[in-house]
C-alpha cells in the first residue's frame, strides 16, 4: 500500500482528517512528527491544517523551520509530491516551496463555508483525475486565507498554468485573481487554503469531491 506521510506540529488540527482521507482513498497514512527528520520512506507528504505553534509570529512561519520541514524541502526538490492544506499551504509558502503569501481575510473574520472551486490544471499529481474546468465543493475555513503575490509572480503563475484551484461563486477572502491554490514549477508541490480532506463523505462534509485529490495522488504513484 502506498505510504503517505501526514505531519503533526504542535497546534496541528486536521492531521486526523488528512490521514482519514488518505485511508479512504486507499493509501496508508504515516504519522510524521515535527521534531523528527526521518520521513520514514513515505512516497508523498501532506502538511495539514491547523494553527501550528499558534500561528505566532506569522501563520506557518515557525513550522517552516521545524526539523521535519527540512527533510520535506529536500525531498520536494527531487520531486516528492507534497500537499499543503490551509496552514500547510501557509507553511509551504514560508518554507519557500511555493510562491506568495497568505494574508488576513479581506473581511477580517474567520470564514467557514462550503466553497466552490474550479480545477485550473490537471498537470499536478494531486489533480490528475480531474478535468480542467471541473467544479468541486469543499469547505474553506480560515482567517488568514487571502492569497497575495507581487504582480510579476502572479503573471508568471498564470502564464505557467500554476494556479491549480480558483474560487468560483464568490471569493471568500479577497485572494488575488481568486486564487485558492497554486503549485511549484514542477507541479509536484501543491498548496491550497480550502480543505479537500473534509469533503470525503456526504455524512460529514458537503460532498465527496475532496477524495479526488488523494485518489489522483495514489494513481500517479501506482503508475510510477
Amino acid at each position: 500500500m502506498t505510504r503517505v506521510g501526514v505531519i503533526t506540529f504542535p497546534g496541528t488540527l486536521d492531521d486526523g482528517d488528512a490521514a482519514r482521507a488518505v485511508r479512504r482513498a486507499g493509501g496508508e497514512p504515516v504519522a510524521l512528527w515535527h521534531a523528527d527528520s526521518d520521513l520514514q520512506g513515505v512516497a508523498a507528504v501532506i502538511v495539514p491544517g491547523g494553527f501550528s505553534y499558534g500561528d505566532y509570529l506569522r501563520a506557518g512561519a515557525i513550522a517552516s523551520m521545524a526539523p521535519i520541514m527540512q527533510s520535506v524541502i529536500d525531498a520536494a526538490r527531487v520531486g516528492m509530491p507534497v500537499l499543503g492544506i490551509c496552514n500547510g499551504f501557509q507553511i509551504l509558502c514560508e518554507a519557500g516551496l511555493l510562491p506568495g503569501a497568505l494574508l488576513r481575510n479581506a473581511g477580517l473574520h474567520f470564514v467557514c463555508r462550503d466553497q466552490r472551486l474550479r480545477i485550473e490544471t490537471t498537470a499536478t499529481p494531486w489533480t490528475r483525475d480531474f478535468s480542467v474546468g471541473d467544479e468541486i465543493v469543499v469547505p474553506v475555513k480560515n482567517i488568514d486565507g487571502r492569497y497575495h503575490a507581487d504582480a510579476a509572480t502572479l503573471q508568471r503563475l498564470e502564464a505557467e498554468n500554476r494556479v491549480v484551484f480558483r474560487y468560483a461563486g464568490g471569493n471568500p477572502n479577497g485572494s488575488l485573481n481568486d486564487i485558492a491554490g497554486v503549485c511549484s514549477e514542477d507541479g509536484r508541490v501543491v498548496g491550497l487554503m480550502p480543505h479537500p480532506e473534509h469533503a470525503i463523505d456526504e455524512l460529514t462534509g458537503p460532498s465527496t469531491d475532496g477524495l479526488g485529490l488523494f485518489r489522483s495522488l495514489l494513481g500517479v504513484l501506482a503508475a510510477a
Binding site: L13, R20, F110, V111, C112, K141, D201, T204, G205
Partner: peptide, 25 residues
C-alpha cells in the same frame, strides 16, 4: 455568527447549525 466557527474539524460532524441539534460521531 456561525460561519466564524469551524464546524468541520475532526471530520465527525454529522449536523451543525442551523440544524436543531448538533450531531457528532
Amino acid at each position: 455568527v456561525t460561519d466564524q466557527y469551524d464546524r468541520y474539524v475532526r471530520g465527525n460532524t454529522a449536523a451543525a447549525q442551523p440544524a436543531d441539534a448538533g450531531v457528532v460521531r
